[in-house]
Amino acid sequence: MSRAVLVDLTRCIGCRSCQVACKSWNDNPAEQTKCLGAYDNPPSFSADTWTVVQFNEVEQADRLQWVFAKRQCMHCEHPGCVAVCTVGALTKTPEGPVVYEASRCIGCRYCQYGCPFGVPSFEWDKPLGLIRKCTFCVDRAEEGYETACVKACPTDALTMGTRHEMISEAHRRINARPHKYHGHIYGEKEAGGTSWLYISPVPFEELGFPMLDGEPMDYASSVIMNATPVTLAAAVGVLSGLYWLTKKKSQAAEEEG
């Protein structure tokens, strides 16, 4: 059964406990940051920062309100990074996590383009750099524990369960308090569905979430990649045919001449 996390943005107070827990569990060092005129800190993912709480100031009905959004790898159902990885270093496991096998990686960084959420980060500071990203705490899952961030969340903004349960739970909360939520469940359909699901008091455009339809990122490229054997056979056929035809023609011309 594929596991998932439901992020309820109406419950998040922006305490960043999840960020700290993530760093702590994964032994990721803190970063030197600087003020960017926003509360977000650090401002983006990096090789050492796998989750970040976004501080959104949203104007709604003439009222300014904070909407905090924890961001991390979405652990897609049909991940773009997995589709493009040259060496198959990234895989989607049936349990939910998109896992990265560092020993295979050649550092081509195509996954950074393939991901629609801008998640995979590269170790720019190392002579031999690799990709790093949220692991969905697979190491904790093996021991039967929830992720470090879910464990740390003091307001139950993060709820963990199966993907099916989390979608039902999201519907239940929205239906119970329709005035409190903007009705959309982000991640139910986006890019073919994700293991991290969000419900929010405001539309997701306002939070800078990428607007994606239900098609997996590799929909078009897969159609063409799957046709490779056809292209190959067609090329060999056409080239052999052309060779035979033009050879016959030039031989005929020679005989005449």
Binding site: C85, T86, R109, L128, G129, M225, T228
Partner: peptide, 22 residues
């Protein structure tokens, strides 16, 4: 490449869905 020492990786590790692999 991030890992020039592993440039041969695609010979051993296959992902035929990947354009870069092909």
């Amino acid at each position: 490449l991030g890992r020039p020492d592993r440039f041969w990786g695609f010979v051993v590790f296959w992902n035929y869905h990947s354009p870069l692999f092909e």
